[in-house]
């Protein structure tokens, strides 16, 4: 770095420069550490209170117990809501990933008239507040007299997930060397074979990331769901509704479980790719 190898001139300027480096060196990680603590405090709280021997409400610490974890479905409706969220998440993710990937391919690979308009159409749902999206869909469902429930929630989730899938996959497609598809065609692959044998495998990590993102958005969504679910209950809705009478500790169990599961899945994936990278380098 310049501070050590740099100027021939000895004196105040280089010294000052060196000192400010050290200050920044220490300051930024400290700020970041504080920010991480801020991010994790409520999660620690949530996890801790999943072990609370709660009576009627889970507001005050009453002692440690395993029983909430042993019987996570103990509270009425909590597991049903959780199952609902999982099925909505899976179905919406599947649909949104397929539709969004196709759109992303069209946008990234083809120059056609109206492409800017399609880009705008994809961007708009992302730049519309959830409350507006929810209200708009509800206005439509009401006027068409559609029965609110599982499928209206799925329809709404697919709608806002598509945009995120498009953005994620499009970035991946744009990062792909177009010569690869040409090389496939040059090596006697039909357009379908070129897609299936070359493009798709290379896009897969991006598509998987988009699916993961979709699922997490869908699973965590409350506002749009609240507008379009009728009496159908998802996990976030369950927590919101029961907040007034006190959230059962089983909800904390499920929240903590999802956090740990997500952490574990991503960390295992990281470790695997890390190990693979090492093997390759060796």
């Amino acid at each position: 770095m310049s501070a050590t190898t740099g100027p021939v001139v000895r004196g105040t300027v280089p010294t000052a420069r060196r000192r400010s480096w050290h200050l920044g060196d220490a300051l930024i990680p400290v700020l970041a550490a504080l920010a991480f603590i801020y991010l994790l405090v409520p999660i620690v709280y949530t996890v801790a209170f999943s072990f609370n021997d709660a009576g009627k409400s889970n507001l005050v610490w009453r002692g440690f117990t395993w029983k909430n974890w042993q019987n996570p479905c103990g509270a009425p409706q909590v597991c049903e809501a959780f199952r609902n969220s999982l099925s909505v998440g899976v179905v919406a993710t599947l649909i949104a990933t397929v539709i969004g990937t196709l759109l992303a391919l069209a946008l990234a690979r083809f120059a056609f008239r109206g492409r800017p308009a399609v880009n705008l159409l994809v961007f708009l749902p992302m730049s519309t507040p959830e409350v507006v999206l929810g209200a708009a869909l509800l206005a439509q469902f009401l006027s068409l007299r559609v029965q609110l429930g599982f499928w209206t929630v799925v329809a709404a989730h697919v709608m806002f997930c598509i945009s995120f899938v498009v953005v994620t996959v499009k970035a991946r497609v744009a990062g792909l060397d177009p010569a690869l598809e040409e090389a496939a065609a040059d090596l006697y692959a039909s357009p379908f074979q070129a897609f299936w044998r070359v493009t798709f495998p290379l896009l897969l990590p991006g598509i998987a990331a988009a699916a993961l993102l979709s699922f997490s958005l869908s699973f965590d969504d409350f506002i749009i769901t609240n507008f379009n679910s009728g009496s159908f209950t998802t996990f976030p809705k369950f927590v919101y509704v029961s907040a007034t009478r006190g959230i059962p500790p089983q909800a904390n169990v499920i929240g903590s479980f999802m956090f740990v599961a997500a952490l574990a899945i991503v960390l295992v994936a990281q470790l695997v790719s890390h190990a693979r990278g090492k093997r390759r380098a060796g």
Partner: peptide, 19 residues
């Protein structure tokens, strides 16, 4: 089209399939 021609190309970027 390209895949029907008895021609092969060595691309400038090589375009080796990374996967």
């Amino acid at each position: 089209r390209a895949h029907r021609r008895p021609v092969n190309t060595v691309f400038q970027s090589y375009a080796l399939f990374p996967h």
